[in-house]
């Protein structure tokens, strides 16, 4: 998995891109990446999932951990552009209520 980050200087919003499979091998890296992003003062995070071909329960746990950490920092974590597999897994675990899938990044940052 490859992680990227776009975060305009001085802005609280950061967009994290995840390319590849978000499974047990990749989840710890995403957790650390979110922690670092929050540590640098970007407390509003969008995780862009269009390049995430697969997610499992470890990947979900990393997103939930990131959501909790972002909220503790006074911010939030939202997700955008999930693939069919990611969308199905979110629905079947009832996590689409706390990680509402936004169609694209601009929808996720709406209101921020």
């Amino acid at each position: 998995m490859e992680l990227t980050r776009t975060s305009p200087a001085g802005e609280p919003v950061a967009v994290i891109g995840c390319q590849g499979r978000l499974n047990m091998l990749a989840a710890p890296a995403l957790r650390s990446f979110i922690e670092e992003t929050l540590g640098e003062g970007h407390e509003k995070i969008v995780v862009e999932l269009s390049g995430t071909s697969f997610i499992d329960s470890s990947g979900l746990a990393a997103l939930i951990g990131g959501l909790k950490a972002a909220r503790q920092s006074g911010g939030d974590l939202r997700i955008a552009a999930p693939s069919d597999q990611v969308r199905s897994v979110l629905r079947l675990t009832n996590l689409d209520r706390v990680l509402l899938p936004h169609a694209q990044v601009s929808d996720a940052t709406d209101g921020w």
């Binding site: 979900l60 746990a61 939930i64 951990g65 675990t93």
Partner: peptide, 19 residues
């Protein structure tokens, strides 16, 4: 059963079963 929304473990085999 499926753990509560903010849980960070306990979903794996439940998810496998529903698939």
């Amino acid at each position: 059963s499926m753990p509560e929304e903010m849980a960070e473990s306990g979903r794996g085999l439940v998810l496998a079963r529903v698939m």
